[in-house]
């Protein structure tokens, strides 16, 4: 592979086949790989199995609305301070997508096991007493061979592709993610292929990034999509805040089951991420800038 892994968001997702399992980064209204998600929607991806972080939001709701999702592993899907995620809710209630009823432990321990290719992880009494094992048959029990006690197990989770947003990445894929610290690295290790969308690409002759701030090593990154404002309308911590106005616009369309109008405007109505940025406009984007790091 060439040392330069940098391409466009559209090229970056071109090789993801229908039916792929995708680990999706981003916590609540922050660090969602939106440029990659928009490119997947625009391309008409189908039958995806999504395993998002335990705090998933608008990107998952949009992929469902666009008909890209077959199966979803749920810990939390919502619009955080803007309420329920309407498309996720409708799809789950009408059973038009398959739901794997999970939670934070199922996702985090699952990816931890997947990152090391452990078969499963045993847990102390946590699921006992709850209804999760009744509806998620992958949460099982086994005997701890050291103590003879019964322990509950969660299965390893692995994805074909891991999609994450970063603030700065170099040409080799060394990835700096500010904001909530280091879980993308675990998800990346649990993914066969890693695709990063990055606001900035570090100049190859610039000083190397501070290694203490590199969250994912380039050695396990396959593709870097150069996507300025690539998390918009979500935030990219240290670079720009979330675009509350556009998120409310999305929520209101979604709540009225008119998500298609939003997608027509911002996703299908533009040919690529560059046109998306032109549509949103410099005034709005620059107004979101956040300069403290």
């Amino acid at each position: 592979m060439s040392a330069n892994k940098v391409t466009t968001p559209e090229e970056a997702v071109a090789g993801i086949p229908d039916g792929a399992t995708i680990a999706l980064g981003g916590v609540h209204s922050h660090n969602g790989p939106m440029a990659l998600v928009n490119a997947l929607i625009r391309r008409g991806a189908r039958d995806l199995e999504l395993i998002p972080t335990p705090s998933a939001g608008a990107p998952v709701d949009m992929l469902i609305a666009a008909g890209c999702v077959r199966k979803l592993h749920v810990s939390y899907v919502g619009l955080e301070f803007l309420g329920m995620a309407p498309n996720y809710r409708r799809a789950a209630e009408s059973q038009s997508i398959e739901i794997v009823e999970g939670d934070e432990a199922y996702i985090v321990y699952g990816f931890r096991a997947g990152a090391s290719t452990l078969p499963f992880l045993p847990l102390p009494p946590l699921y006992e007493g709850t209804d999760l094992p009744k509806v998620n048959k992958a949460i099982k029990t086994t005997t701890d061979p050291y103590t003879g006690r019964t322990v509950t197990t969660v299965p390893a989770l692995r994805a074909d592709y891991g999609l994450f947003h970063a603030q700065v990445t170099d040409r080799k894929g060394n990835t700096q993610i500010f904001g909530q610290r280091r879980f993308e690295d675990v998800m990346a290790k649990a993914s066969d292929h890693v695709i990063i969308s990055s606001d900035e690409i570090l100049d190859e002759y610039a000083p190397a990034p501070d290694p203490r701030l590199v969250s994912i090593p380039g050695a396990i990154v396959d593709i870097v999509a150069h996507a300025p404002y690539g998390s918009h309308p979500l935030s990219s911590p240290g670079h720009y805040a979330y675009d509350r106005e556009q998120l409310v616009e999305y929520r209101d369309f979604a709540a009225q089951d008119r998500t298609k109008e939003y997608l027509d405007e911002y996703v299908y109505g533009v040919k690529d991420h560059q046109e998306y940025l032109e549509k949103v406009g410099a005034r709005r984007l620059l107004g979101l800038q956040q300069t403290f790091r």
Partner: peptide
């Protein structure tokens, strides 16, 4: 046949921890 689908369990099993 859920009447209302909620956002999900997130960290609530950790009431056991």
């Amino acid at each position: 046949k859920p009447k209302v689908r909620g956002p999900g369990t997130i960290g609530l099993i950790f009431t056991g921890g």
